[in-house]
């Protein structure tokens, strides 16, 4: 079979997208001498020393744990707040519901930098500064509206007759909500989880400002290593690889619902 032009273009584009990722991985598997030495596509002597360094050095692995802690906290808070909110927006009409819903979206329009100073001052004053909760709560300002917005689309696609039927069948509301409604929307919740996770995982500005020595996130450690003992290219690249991995994992689990998620559930 002769490959068609569109197929070739697709392959070239795919390679182009994967090239930086490959280069990151390739760097992570070399030592510094190899990296700054002669150009070669494949590592001459692949080594796992960079990864060993990260898992042995508390500065590195604690930074990963710090990031994972506030990301997990943020995701949990966002979902537990956004699921009930989205259900109410999709099922009830109340005074100002549409305005409130739109106002939620406008929160997403403000750049995180705007909130930097108020968050910093407030958290310092009430002793939240330099805790995982500080970053998680700050990120909620962005992930909660996004989650409500995505979930509402999915929830509205579930006919209200289903709610009524469960009541007629004699089920209590908690039974309906947790045993029927949430399982039906498993995909939606997975997609929302992905968006929360990714936002919080890659966000640098708030995470850096609201943390001190105790809870330094991985992105911060990565930028600071530059000035430490020269420039450790290999370890930095290995850290980069490990930073990409959680995102890849989450994408893998929600890949089927992701397209619908990007359309905010408004795809039938």
């Amino acid at each position: 079979m002769k490959p068609s032009a569109s197929r070739i273009i697709l392959w070239v584009y795919g390679l182009y997208l994967l090239l930086p990722l490959y280069w990151l991985l390739s760097m992570a598997l070399r030592n510094n001498a190899d990296i700054v030495g002669e150009f070669s596509v494949f590592p001459a002597a692949p080594t796992l020393a960079n990864f060993q360094e990260i898992f042995a050095n508390p500065v590195w692995y604690e930074a990963f744990l710090n990031s994972l802690t506030y990301v997990t906290l943020n995701t949990l808070i966002s979902l537990s707040v956004a699921i009930p909110a989205a259900y109410v927006f999709s099922r009830y009409r109340f005074l100002g519901d549409k305005q409130l819903f739109f106002w939620l979206l406008t929160n997403r329009m403000a750049p995180p930098a705007v909130f930097l100073l108020p968050f910093f001052q407030l958290y310092s004053a009430i002793g939240l500064f330099d805790t995982p909760l500080a970053v998680a709560l700050a990120h909620c300002l962005f992930t909660v509206p996004l989650s409500v917005w995505i979930l509402e689309g999915f929830f509205s696609a579930v006919p209200t007759e289903l709610d009524e039927m469960a009541r007629i069948d004699g089920h209590s509301f908690p039974y309906f909500f947790f045993r029927i409604f949430l399982p039906i929307n498993r995909g939606a919740i997975g997609v929302t989880l992905f968006f929360c996770f990714m936002f919080s995982w890659v966000e640098l500005l708030l995470a850096r400002t609201l943390t001190g020595a105790e809870t330094k996130p991985i992105a911060v450690v990565m930028t600071r290593t530059v000035s430490a003992s020269g420039l450790d290219w290999g370890v930095l690249a290995a850290a980069g690889v490990l930073t990409v991995l959680p995102g890849v994992l989450v994408v893998w689990f929600v890949r089927k619902d992701l397209v619908k998620g990007f359309a905010l559930g408004r795809v039938s």
Binding site: P159, E161, L162, E164, M165, A166, R167, I168, G170, I180, P183, I184
Partner: peptide
């Protein structure tokens, strides 16, 4: 609601059961 059974025009069943 205790006293009635209902069938809707749209086919409404629990999709996860």
């Amino acid at each position: 609601q205790q006293a009635v059974g209902m069938v809707y025009q749209a086919f409404v069943n629990y999709p996860n059961l």
